[in-house]
Design a binder for these strands. Structure first.
Lengths: 121, 121
DNA sequence: TAGTTAATTAACCTATTGGTTAAATATAAA
DNA sequence: TTTATATTTAACCAATAGGTTAATTAACTA
């Protein structure tokens, strides 16, 4: 059994599944609609499996309408990812601000040439 | 060969690796420092492997200092994730709207359920 | 030089992932 | 009742992920 965040990240770690989410972000679609762009590269059951991964992560909700299975995007797991990401915001903002990064090294607790891993001798 | 986003999401899809990132967000650490919290659950080579996944995703940079390997967090992949996430912001914010709508229903207001996304038949 | 500490590599194992084809199920339509 | 469409399930397979233990490499220390 996996935690929710792990399920979500694992679901997002595949370009086919991300493309399916992008498609769903433009509106509901049933399985064969979702599959169409990929049927040159893979079979329909493969798409069904990808969809199941997205469902298990809660990213997609599948309903029933006659023989079709309309799918829609569910935002909640994105919110979870966003919340988790917040704790790293300073790092990714810093990575595009060299001055800020430099200031961090010179004002930080340990300088670059300092004894970083102070083992007692 | 995987694209960068897939490598990053896959790296994030493991609680041990996320815990290692959390540790690194509080400062540089060498491999045995990083491993310490996990050595009851897994071996040191297992930690080395997790670290390698984080490195391949570009989330961690490992340097050399005597026999130690100081590791530091690299923000760039977080930025990539954040950029990718932007296209879904409306969906996770909308999920708050839904919660808000629900709260209104339980506090006496009639919730209107309008279809947001049209589906072709 | 020998010993200690830090970390990696090698060889191996099992479970999971991502795909396949063929068969089955569900619903609508003729 | 048969046929067509939409989708899933079953059975299988190869590659990868995540773990192990034992051996190896790298650098410092006595």
């Amino acid at each position: 059994m996996q935690d929710g965040l792990s399920l979500t990240f694992a679901a997002l770690a595949d370009p086919t599944r991300r493309a399916m989410l992008a498609r769903l972000s433009r509106g509901e679609a049933n399985v064969s609609d979702l599959a169409k762009p990929f049927l040159k590269e893979m079979s329909l059951p493969a798409v069904t499996k990808h969809l199941k991964v997205l469902e298990k992560a809660g990213l997609v909700t599948k309903t029933r309408e006659a023989q079709w299975r309309p799918c829609k995007l569910n935002g909640a797991p994105f919110k979870d990812v966003s919340n988790w990401m917040e704790q790293y915001r300073t790092f990714w903002e810093e990575s595009f601000d060299r001055l800020d990064a430099y200031l961090k090294t010179v004002t930080g607790n340990e300088g670059k040439k300092g004894k970083k891993h102070g083992r007692k001798k």
